[in-house]
Structure formats: structure tokens, C-alpha cells
Design a binder for these strands. Structure first.
Lengths: 214, 214
DNA sequence: CATGGTTGGATAGTGCCACTATCCGGCGAG
DNA sequence: CTCGCCGGATAGTGGCACTATCCAACCATG
């Protein structure tokens, strides 16, 4: 398959594919001659994954490169791979970098988050992990706006998150092959986020109608 | 309070506050003289909300303006206000506009999503609503990558989403005042997204450790 | 063999968007 | 008086995901 056909089958412009090749998101095609290269089905699949991560998952190009490098890395067991994937994924609020906020709200948030995770016994990822920091930032913002979000309130959401992760892992384990599972751990983590959030919005509308109308 | 103090108390640069005033995200201050204006606590609160929507919720400035206009709109009942807020919120994958994709994956996704929502009886928001379209896009992407996401698989996530929305509405109803609830419906919908997704990541790590190690 | 369209690679440019820097005249504290 | 701060208007910046252009090699066709 040539670049043009890869573009036609994926719907991605050739210029964009070249860009991804340059950025290392897509492995180079098999060299046919000095100025020609050929691509296979695996390139098509990877290209679709890249598009999904970037467009649906809103992942920055640089992050996608790191995540995909981890996916391709051999010699990692299932758990570390999922860990790497989860670690590298940017989450919903990457923020303007390590600006080390230390206001009252952030300190409160750290305390509530810490006590929540301690109570749940969730100690795989501690402070410093992206998910943890994102959580602290979000809770700090809620605190700053004056909304209740002590560990008690958060616990309810944590229990629900645990159910989601069970569904995630069930789905992951139902897939064949180990390589596929690694890729899937990334793809499913990212792509089920919009699914979950959209369903939440739809469910909110239903629940709101139930409570405020009929 | 002058602009400089508003800036100091919120941590937002004065230039940025001026920008928000220009964009209509923040109501103008009370005119003290021809070239002086004063701001109150409500401006501080609104400014924090704006920052939260834009930075934590990743909402485009234009969308934030619309959402806040709906929040300020009097003469809307609770349900419509939540509806407007939820409708205007952009969700995780706004996409490159109404490009009317109509490939096989999208058609499959529309069918699965339709049958899922029909089965659940969720008919508040049909096709055309942002949440619905976001869901279709995400499912289409999953289909394209070859992951299982029939209505059956999605139902499990939908049930979990329903639990989230119950928690959301419980929290909303626990707040005093009606104006506060309107603002809260926006703030909580947006700000609990990172909370939920971060908790999911943390829970995934725990669940993964439980299954693949111990 | 000529030749014209196509291919892959390199380089520079575009468009969007959330700010941000600068300038200007009016105000007000000392 | 006066000098620095205030608010408002205008234009510029930086980041990022592409995208347009150019070039020489390549291959199919006549």
C-alpha cells in the first residue's frame, strides 16, 4: 500500500500522514526504492489509533508518541504496560505545568484526596502521578468555588469509578492476544472517557426530568 | 474592589481579566467615574468559575460565554437550565464541526447508540444533541478500531453513568438557593468530569494490580 | 527512449485560540 | 502640581496541529 492509498482508506490527508511519520507516531513504511515506501494493514490500524488518541482523546502529539512508544516496548508485563499507559495519559486538565500551587484550597484538596485514597487503600499511584495531581487540581477548584467535596462526598464517586474500572478490565481480559491487550488498555482507557461522559450527560437529563418534572 | 485587587485575590493576571471583560465572560464593574470601575465579591466568584470552566473544564471561551449567559438568564425553570447547561457544554470531543461523516462505522455506531438509548428509555436528548453526537463519534471510533461496543457492552457503562447522575443530582439538591443550583449544575457537571476520570485511572491501577499480580 | 503524472521527503507557512504587551488619556494621593 | 496607577483599546505572542509548496526520484505509458 502506498501513502495515497493509506490516506484514502483512513480518510487522513497525506500531508497529515507525513506529519505523523515525521513525528514518530507512525513507523516508517517498508522501503521499496530510494524514494518509495510501502505500508501494510498494521500501518492503517496504527494510524486509526493515532487519530483516535489525538482527535477523540484530545491527546497532544508529543504525549501520543510517548504512549505509543510504551505500547511498542517489549519486555513489559501486563500490569506495567497498563501502568505506563495510564501514567502517560494526560487526563482532562494537564494544566500549565508544574507551577507548584500552594494556596489554601490546594492544601485542603491534597488532604481530602489523601484521606480518601488512604481510606480506600488505593496506593498504586501516590502523589506525583498525573491522575493524582489532576484529581487534586479538580478538587481544589471545587473547594475554591465553595462546593462540598470532602472525602465523604468523593467516596461515592470513587465507588462508581471502581465499577467502571471493573468493567474496563473485564472488557480488556475478554480480548485475545497479549499485544492486543496492551494496545487496548490505552485505547479503551482513552476512548471510553467520552463514552462515559456522554452517557453521564444523557443520564443527567433523564434524572433531572424525573426529579423536577414528573 | 479595583481590577488590581480582583487580580491579586483570584490569581488571574489583570490583562486576562480585561480580556474576559471584553469577551463578556465577566460582567462589567460598577462605574465609579469615567475611567474607574469597582468590582464586588460576585465578580470574584464569577471569575473563579470562568477560570474553572476554561482551564479545568477545557471549555472554549465562546462556549463559556454562552453557558454563562444561560446561567444568568432569568425565567427558566430548574430542568431547562440544567438542560441548557448540559446542551451547551462541549463534551470531550467537539470535532471539526458538522462534517456529516457517514461511513460504515458511524452508521453502526448510530444504530448501537440508538438501540441502547431506546432500551433504557432515555429520550430527553435525541440525535442532534451534543452528548448524543459525542457518544456516536466515540463509539464509531471504537468500532473502527475493532473493539466490541455493542449495545450490550455499553449498557453496563450506561448503568454506571446513571449512578453518577444520581450522585450529581443528590449533590445539586443538597445546595441551598435556586440561583446557586443553576450555577452549580454547570460547575458540577464540568468539574466532576476530571474527578471521575482521575478516580477511574486510580481505580484501574488498583484493579489491574489485583488481577495481574496478587 | 521520452515524458508526464505521481511519490516521498524537506521546509516553511497557516489558522486557531487563549492570552499578553503596549499605548493612551483620565484620576487621585501626596 | 505631578507622578504613578487605573481602565480601555489595539495589536502582538506563543503554542500547536496541521498544511501548502517545492524538489528530485520513480514508474507507467506511448
Amino acid at each position: 500500500m502506498r501513502l495515497a492509498e493509506l490516506s484514502a482508506r483512513s480518510g487522513v490527508p497525506t500531508a497529515t500522514i507525513k506529519f505523523y511519520l515525521r513525528e514518530g507516531l507512525l513507523p516508517p513504511g517498508e522501503r521499496i526504492s530510494a524514494t518509495q515506501a510501502g505500508y501494510g494493514e498494521e500501518h492503517l490500524h496504527r494510524l486509526r489509533l493515532v487519530r483516535a488518541l489525538i482527535q477523540v482523546g484530545r491527546m497532544p502529539v508529543a504525549t501520543a508518541r510517548e504512549v505509543l512508544a510504551a505500547v511498542d516496548d517489549p519486555g513489559l508485563d501486563q500490569h506495567s504496560r497498563l501502568g505506563i499507559a495510564t501514567w502517560a495519559l494526560p487526563g482532562p486538565a494537564p494544566g500549565p505545568g508544574p507551577e507548584e500551587e500552594d494556596d489554601a484550597a490546594t492544601r485542603t484538596a491534597r488532604q481530602e484526596v489523601g484521606s480518601l485514597l488512604e481510606h480506600l487503600g488505593w496506593d498504586q499511584f501516590g502523589p506525583g502521578s498525573p491522575a493524582y495531581e489532576t484529581l487534586v487540581r479538580a478538587v481544589a477548584t471545587l473547594v475554591r468555588l465553595g462546593y462540598p467535596c470532602e472525602a465523604g462526598h468523593l467516596r461515592r464517586y470513587a465507588h462508581i469509578a471502581a465499577q467502571v474500572s471493573e468493567a474496563d478490565l473485564d472488557l480488556l481480559e475478554s480480548l485475545p492476544g497479549e499485544v492486543e491487550q496492551v494496545e487496548a488498555s490505552v485505547a479503551l482507557t482513552v476512548l471510553f472517557e467520552p463514552v462515559l461522559l456522554s452517557l453521564r450527560r444523557l443520564a443527567q437529563a433523564e434524572e433531572s426530568a424525573r426529579r423536577f418534572r414528573g
